[in-house]
Simulated assay, not measured.
Amino acid sequence: MPRERITPDALVSAAADLADEIGFGNLTLAAVAKHFGVRDASLYTHIRGLADLRERVAQLALTEWADALGSAVAGRSRRDALVAFADAYRAMATGHPGRYAATRHPVPSDSPGVTRIVEACYALLRGYDLTEPDATDAVRLLRSTLHGFSDLEATGSFTADHSLDTSWRRAVDTLHHTLANWSMA
């Protein structure tokens, strides 16, 4: 069987898939090289090293996440947009744990994926008629709630014998209620 051709895009994609399997923190050049059936040194034709590879995986994950979140809110508003956004967020965190961990890897704040994720957050909030500084506070509430729940779920930290889906829906409903009544807070 011939070896898979190594290109920068194929290398980053394979590394992201591997991160989902073994964890972003466990991603090594040796593991990626093994996937391609080559020596570690062969990867340096396409990347500068592990730090470069991790940043590229982070950029890929942020772009994929931005695509999912942007699609989720497109054509929707208020509760419908919030539910779709939240579900896309949760699906990323639990379905792609390595990529999700990569989204917390330091990248420039003006990276396209970061910019598009922020835009998706603010697009969601437009339906709630929030202006600054309330919109920034709402984005922070939204992200910390969704991240906290998703991260705890992804790491198996919820142990109660109660439906996670039910708890998720209640959390999202609470966010909707809070956002819809923000000016009264």
Rank of each mutant, 00 (worst) to 15 (best):
P108S: 11
A102N: 12
M92T: 04
A81I: 11
A66E: 06
E55N: 01
A66F: 07
R79D: 09
R79H: 15
R143M: 10
A14N: 07
A88Y: 02
N181A: 14
T136S: 13
L130Q: 07
A84D: 03
S157C: 05
Y122V: 14
H105Y: 15
F24M: 11
E55P: 01
H176C: 13
T178R: 04
M92V: 02
A68D: 07
A31S: 12
H162K: 10
L11R: 04
R48C: 03
R79C: 09
E64L: 11
T155R: 11
A72I: 01
A154P: 05
S157L: 10
L179H: 07
V114Q: 14
T131Q: 11
V73G: 00
L141H: 10
V12I: 13
S150M: 08
A30W: 09
A10G: 13
A185F: 14
D161Y: 02
G49N: 07
G95W: 04
S163P: 06
T94A: 01
E153S: 08
Y100I: 06
K34I: 07
T159W: 10
L175I: 02
A14L: 09
L27C: 03
R3C: 07
G156L: 05
L179R: 02
L125C: 06
H35A: 04
T45C: 04
V107K: 05
A138C: 13
A123C: 13
A93R: 15
F158T: 04
L175C: 03
D67S: 06
E55S: 02
A51S: 11
T103G: 08
A135P: 07
P8Y: 02
L142S: 01
P112L: 10
P108C: 02
L60Y: 05
V57R: 05
F158C: 06
L29S: 01
D129N: 14
A30D: 14
L141A: 13
T63P: 05
A154L: 10
A185S: 15
D20V: 01
L146S: 00
H96K: 12
A41R: 12
A154K: 06
D137L: 15
L125Q: 03
R48M: 08
L175R: 04
